[in-house]
Design a protein around this nucleic acid. Structure first.
Lengths: 226, 226
DNA sequence: GTGAGATTACCGACAAGTCAGTAAGCTTGG
DNA sequence: CCAAGCTTACTGACTTGTCGGTAATCTCAC
């Protein structure tokens, strides 16, 4: 597999929307395919979902999908990039906020996600699958988590400065923990949609972690009966 | 759920070690296969890992595996049950503690898990895969999370009573959140073993959540600059 | 304790189906 | 007319599960 992430012959950047090459209807069709891919691979997983499944949903044969995306692996990667793009489009300003605002943004994201189980499911399944051997999305998720942890860590730094807290020993743990609750709650919410409330619970947990950074409470051992 | 998980023809209880039917060497072989299954399906996922992969690791053909477990689905289910059993065996008293001790037990579990990435990976991949359509382990994980949330909720009740806290409105959120961080941190730890510290970070997060139940800090909006 | 008959453990071969990817050709917008 | 979009037809690689057969092991009458 030579150029792993795209099947386009020329080495042009993926992001550059090459208008000369593609008809407008084609761009639309590609988007339709990507949406179907989110649905299929979210519902059946990336290994069990097939190109034929995706093709059927857009009224095509699987060879048609391959015409557009070259390979299944490439379709999966473009699907993840597509989700990111769709995420940012939701934001009024096309940029994720920094500083203390970030925590509110994360909570809002959790509430938004509660309205779109399909995408959440695709993301949850793919992220866990990515830890398997030679998974196409491994690098994608490694970068994603690194980036998000860094952004959250920076937000904590700003917050600590603002609140006059000097001990920043817990911020890296807290950053990882915030991402972790959000992911873990998504899984439980997908398993028990009526029982676990994604938005509210995420809000509670993020608040708990943020407050613990600013003012750590007693140690757990305190509560064990001695 | 007794005999549903085995392909044995007679409806005898699984737990009763039927010495007459199985040779001691066979029991050993079965365990060996289950261990190999944890390795293979943890490394490659349940859909991508094959019976032949498992068979090769124990020096057999895939037909031999099917002789012992009847079907791939059954092998997967027995593998999960096997992990649970191995978990409990680690405990000195064969029972998960209740009350405030439970939180310390969960932290200890996180530290123990940091020593066995293979099993953690299998569990992480399978739990996420379980939300896909008609996954064999779906029911297993639904029950698992329900049970664990209930146990943690009960532990919170005891803790609240002990500490004189009457407002228990957050305990169900907290129970889900604790499981969520543990799961989510496992994923990040598997992606970045050197960066994320499973034990320490879990400890921090669980402490943060427990303390938030007993004494909720300020709301997140407090920190946003006005 | 031993030999006959049953049961278990496993293999080799194969059946049946699935899936990604390829090649060649039809169709149609521009 | 010609390239992009798509199909039909096909291949080769896998995979689960089945089936007979074989060798090892167990049971038990004698």
């Amino acid at each position: 597999m030579p150029d792993r992430y795209t099947h386009q012959k020329k080495g042009d950047a993926v992001a550059t929307e090459n208008a000369t090459r593609t008809r407008p209807a084609t761009r639309q069709k590609r988007t339709e395919i990507l949406r179907a891919a989110v649905d299929i691979f979210g519902t059946k997983g990336s290994a069990n979902g097939t190109l034929a499944d995706v093709a059927e949903q857009v009224g095509m044969t699987h060879a048609g999908i391959l015409h557009h995306f070259g390979s299944k692996q490439n379709l999966l990667l473009e699907m993840l990039a597509f989700r990111d793009q769709a995420d940012v489009e939701d934001l009024v300003e096309q940029h994720i906020p920094g500083g203390p605002e970030l925590f509110l943004h994360l909570v809002r994201t959790a509430f938004v996600n509660a309205q779109r189980p399909g995408i959440v499911q695709a993301y949850t399944v793919m992220s866990a699958e990515s830890i398997t051997d030679d998974h196409p999305a491994r690098e994608y998720f490694e970068e994603r988590y690194s980036t998000l942890r860094r952004e959250i860590t920076e937000a904590f730094s700003e917050l600590c400065a603002q609140e006059g807290v000097t001990d920043q020993s817990t911020v890296s743990s807290a950053a990882a923990a915030i991402l972790a609750v959000m992911d873990g709650l998504q899984l439980q919410w997908l398993l028990h949609p009526g029982v676990v409330e994604l938005g509210e619970t995420s809000q509670f947990a993020i608040r708990a972690i943020v407050n613990a950074v600013l003012k750590p409470g007693p140690e757990l051992e305190t509560y064990a009966q001695g």
